[in-house]
Amino acid sequence: MSTKTATFDGLAQFDRTTSIWGPITLGLGFLVSLAAALFAAFGTGLGITGQEVWTAFGIVFATFGIIAVVEPISYYPILGRSAMYQAFMIGNIANKLLPSALIAQTDLGEKPGTRRAELIAGAAIIGAAFVHIITLIILVGFLGTWLLGLLPAGLIAVARLYILSAVFGAVTVQAVVSMKNARTTIIAAVVSAIVVYGVVRLAPVLTNYATAVSVVAVIIVAWFARKRTVASEAIDAPADAPSSIGH
C-alpha cells in the first residue's frame, strides 16, 4: 500500500512540475524568439512595414502551416507529454532526440510508452541538449565565425549565392527517400513542375505563392489518388514519425 502511494506521489509530483514548467519554459523560448523576430523587423530602423512582414510570414505559413499542426500530433505518442515541451524547443527531434531517447531506453531494457521509459527519455534528451549546445557554441559560434573571417570574400559570395540550391537538392532527395511513397513523389514532381515552369510563367502574380499553391494542389491530388484499401493504408503509414522538417 505504502509503495503504491509512493509511486503515485512521485509521478504525480513529476507530472505537476513538468505540466507547469514545461509550458512556461517553452513559452519563454517562444517569447524570446518572437522578440528577436520583431526586433529584426521593426527595431533596427530599416523601415520595414507590418504589411511586409505579414506578407512574408503569410507565404511561409501557407506553405508549412499544415506540417506544424501534424508534427506535434505524430510525435506525441513517441515522446510523451513531458518530453514534448523539451523536444519542440530544442529541435532536431527526428535526427537527434529520438535516437538518443531510444538508445537510453534500450540500455535499461525499456520500451517507449511506459512511465519509466518517459523518465529515461527525458534524461536522455537533457544529455543530448547539453552536448548539442556545447557543440554549437564551440564549433559554430566560435570556430565557424572565426573561419568565416578567414575565408576570401569571393568564396563567401559563392556560398551565399548558391546555398539555396545546395540545400534544396539534398533535402528533396532526403524527403523522397524517407517518405518511401512513389505515388505521392510522382504527383509532387509533376504538379511542382507544372507550377514552376507553367503557372508562374503564365501568371507572374502567383510567383510568391507558387510553393503554397503546389502544396495545396499536391495534397488534394495525393488525397484523391491514395490507395484506398484499409490494408494498404495501414502499410503506407510509416512506423516511425514523419521525418521532421521544422524541427
Partner: peptide, 8 residues
C-alpha cells in the same frame, strides 16, 4: 504531411 513536404 508527405504531400506537403514533397510539394514544398
Amino acid at each position: 504531411p508527405t504531400a506537403a513536404i514533397l510539394a514544398a
